[in-house]
């Protein structure tokens, strides 16, 4: 009987959580225009979320591109196909790895920080104090962070892709001896501006939206205790990263999966 109740409690808890998450998105979107009215706040958050994530994104992108090139070369060279190395690196980055890894890194670096920040604001009653002063905390605190996240992830993705392609170029041509012209030519022949790069950008916007939504929601939904903040931060990273990976599969299946 107890086990049955536990299952029920677990399910109801999940449904409540999901419901609050949805309602929260609606309240946030209702006041989203504040982001444009006070754009300076967004710029400030863009600094904390975007610029602070820049270094880790660039370093990660460089190494991912280099590893892709190295590993791709060892597979391709068996079939005499090392001339397609540039295509392999560029397609993997623009279609999948760039959007996914940039979003996951953003979740770990900026998402967790913002969840903890909002959570602490809530725990120390700063949000309640704002409401007392007739300032909507959602419009003043949440919306700028959310909008900054949605804008930052695509920018970081683009930078990740570029650095990755250049890293792959360095390893492929300088170290493994693929001709540099062949590297660029195979890339330019195979990469489509809209089909590959455009879809990658759409993906990164979707990921940015979901990750930012999760990070601000978990922050506002925090139990106002020290333990609650730590749990909310963990949940942002876990749920955020998993949703990015899961959504990536769905988006890939929708964009490229159809047999045409």
């Amino acid at each position: 009987m107890n086990a049955l109740a536990a299952i029920g409690r677990f399910t109801l808890g999940g449904v409540y959580h999901l419901g609050r998450c949805g309602v929260f998105l609606c309240t946030m979107l209702a006041v989203i225009s504040h982001a444009w009215r006070r754009f300076a706040l967004v710029v400030r958050q863009l600094y904390f979320a975007g610029v602070m994530t820049l270094l880790i994104t660039l370093v990660a992108g460089l190494f991912v591109g280099m590893v892709l090139s190295l590993q791709g070369y060892y597979t391709l060279v068996n079939y005499g196909g090392e001339s397609a190395l540039g295509l392999l690196v560029a397609l993997s980055l623009t279609r999948e790895l760039g959007p996914v890894l940039a979003a996951v890194l953003f979740t770990g670096r900026a998402g967790s920080a913002i969840t903890a920040e909002i959570g602490l604001m809530k725990a120390t009653d700063q949000l309640a104090a704002m409401e007392m002063m007739a300032t909507d905390p959602v419009a003043r605190v949440v919306v700028p962070r959310f909008v900054a996240g949605v804008l930052a992830v695509p920018i970081l993705t683009l930078l990740f892709n570029v650095v990755g392609v250049l890293g792959g170029y360095y390893v492929g041509t300088v170290q493994l001896g693929v001709d540099s012209g062949v590297y660029w030519a195979s890339m330019q022949n195979g990469v489509d501006v809209f089909e590959d790069i455009g879809n990658g950008i759409i993906k990164s916007f979707v990921f940015g939206f979901v990750v930012s939504w999760i990070m601000v929601f978990e922050g506002c939904d925090t139990e106002p205790t020290a333990e609650g903040i730590s749990r909310a931060t963990t949940r942002t990273v876990v749920v955020g990263s998993l949703s990015v990976l899961g959504l990536d599969y769905i988006l890939t299946a929708l964009m490229y999966g159809g047999i045409s």
């Binding site: 695509p154 683009l158 501006v193």
Partner: peptide, 17 residues
């Protein structure tokens, strides 16, 4: 950051794609 993003977009569109 924003300028870097725009330049990257240009690079991807004209050099990679």
């Amino acid at each position: 950051l924003v300028l870097g993003g725009l330049l990257s977009l240009g690079f991807l569109a004209f050099e990679v794609g």
